[in-house]
C-alpha cells in the first residue's frame, strides 16, 4: 500500500516530531522519555491527572486528546502496540498534582500489562493511580463477559467525561467512577470494508473480498464476528444498532450520545449516511440524541469502515459531555 512516509522504522518518531511542532501551544514532550507527552499549559495543583494512551496509528487517538477538559498527558506506543511502562510512569509523575492520576486505556492484553506495571511503579513512588479500561465493543465478547471486551471508539466518551470531571475538580475516586460509568453506559460495534497496512510490512491487515465486509471488526484489524456480502448503508447500520440495543436496552424517552466513527479512509459523506439511519432508528424508538459526533475520532491508519457508538446519558454525564474542551484534534465550545 502507498504511504507518504520516509523510513518505516521511524514513522512514529517523525509523526511525533511533526505533531509537537504543529501544536507546541497545546502539548510538549517530557525530557525523560520521548514517548511521554503532556499538556503545555499549567494545570492547577490538586487537580486529578488524566492519563490516556495506547498504540499509534489511531490518530486523533490518543495524542490528539490532550488538552483542557480532556487528558493531561499521553503515553505513545508503537503502531498498534501498547506503550511500555516507562513513558506511562513519566507522564504520571509529570501530571500528578497531588490528587492522583487516572489511567484510561483500552482493554487489550498488552495495555493491561504495561499500564498495570506502570501503576505499580507509580504507587511505589507514592502516586495514587486508578485504572479504567475501555470495553465498549459488543462484537468482541458476549454480554456476560463484558470484562473481556476490547475498547474501541467509545473510549472517546470516557476521555471526554472523565476529562471534564477532573477539570471540574472531582476527586480521583469520582473521576474514576465517572470513567467507569461512562464505559458501562457505552456500546460500540464496527464494520470493516478495507484493510490497513503496517508501514513496516506493507501487507493488508486482513483479507477481504471486493464485495465483502467484516462485521464486528476490531480497530486494529482484528477479525470480527463474520464476513458478509457488503450491504447498503442502512442495512449495515440496522445490524450495528440492533446489536448495540440488544446489549444495552434503552427505553422511550431516554437520552443518548451517538458517535459514528470513521476508521480512516471512509469519507465523511458515508459516515453521515450511516448516522442518518441510526438517528431514524433511535427516533422511531423514542430515544433522544442529545449530542452527535460524526468523523474520524479513533482510526486504524487507512482502514475503511466505521463504528457506531451509543452512550446512555443521565444528567451527570450530559453536563460532563457539554463541558468545553480544547485539544489539538478536539475542540468543543
Amino acid at each position: 500500500m502507498k504511504k507518504l512516509i520516509n523510513n518505516p522504522t521511524y514513522v512514529v518518531e517523525e509523526m511525533l516530531d511533526g505533531f509537537l511542532k504543529a501544536h507546541s501551544n497545546y502539548i510538549r514532550v517530557l525530557p525523560e522519555n520521548d514517548r511521554a507527552l503532556v499538556t503545555s499549559r499549567t494545570t492547577r495543583e490538586g487537580k486529578v491527572g488524566v492519563l490516556i494512551g495506547g498504540g499509534s496509528g489511531h490518530e486523533p487517538g490518543f495524542l490528539g486528546y490532550v488538552g483542557d477538559g480532556m487528558a493531561d498527558g499521553v503515553a505513545v506506543g508503537n503502531i498498534f502496540a501498547s506503550p511500555p511502562p516507562a513513558p506511562i510512569l513519566e507522564v504520571t509523575k509529570a501530571i500528578d498534582k497531588g490528587a492522583g492520576v487516572v489511567y484510561l486505556y483500552g482493554n487489550y492484553a498488552g495495555d493491561v500489562m504495561n499500564f498495570g506495571m506502570a501503576a505499580e511503579l507509580a504507587e511505589m513512588e507514592g502516586i495514587k493511580v486508578e485504572m479504567v479500561l475501555g470495553s465498549d465493543d459488543v462484537a468482541s465478547a458476549p454480554k456476560e463477559e463484558k470484562h473481556r471486551r476490547r475498547g474501541i471508539a467509545g473510549e472517546l466518551f470516557v476521555f471526554k467525561t472523565a476529562g471534564a470531571a477532573a477539570d471540574l475538580g472531582y476527586s480521583l475516586e469520582e473521576v474514576a467512577r465517572i470513567a467507569r460509568k461512562t464505559n458501562d453506559h457505552t456500546r460500540s460495534m464496527g464494520v470493516g470494508l478495507t484493510p490497513c497496512s503496517l508501514p513496516q510490512t506493507g501487507k493488508p491487515s486482513f483479507e477481504i473480498g471486493d464485495d465483502e465486509m467484516e462485521i464486528g471488526l476490531g480497530h486494529h484489524g482484528e477479525p470480527g464476528i463474520r464476513k458478509a456480502k457488503l450491504q447498503q448503508a442502512d442495512v449495515v447500520t440496522d445490524e450495528l444498532v440492533a446489536a448495540i440495543l440488544e446489549d444495552i436496552p434503552l427505553n422511550e424517552g431516554e437520552e443518548v450520545a451517538v458517535l459514528v466513527n470513521g476508521l480512516g479512509s471512509t469519507p465523511r459523506m458515508e459516515l453521515y449516511i450511516m448516522f442518518r439511519r441510526a438517528e431514524q432508528i433511535l427516533r422511531e424508538k423514542g430515544i433522544k440524541i442529545y449530542r452527535s459526533y460524526v468523523g474520524d475520532y479513533i482510526t486504524s491508519l487507512e482502514m475503511g469502515g466505521c463504528s457506531i457508538t451509543i452512550t446512555k446519558l443521565d444528567n451527570e454525564l450530559k453536563t460532563l459531555l457539554d463541558h468545553p474542551a480544547d485539544c489539538p484534534m478536539f475542540v468543543q465550545k
Partner: peptide, 22 residues
C-alpha cells in the same frame, strides 16, 4: 519477522514480527 506478522495478521493485529524486530 514476516512469518510472525503473517500469523498475527490472521489472529490479531499483524504486528508480532514487527514488534519482535523492533
Amino acid at each position: 519477522k514476516d512469518y510472525l506478522c503473517e500469523l498475527d495478521r490472521k489472529l490479531g493485529d499483524g504486528d508480532h514480527g514487527v514488534t519482535m524486530s523492533i
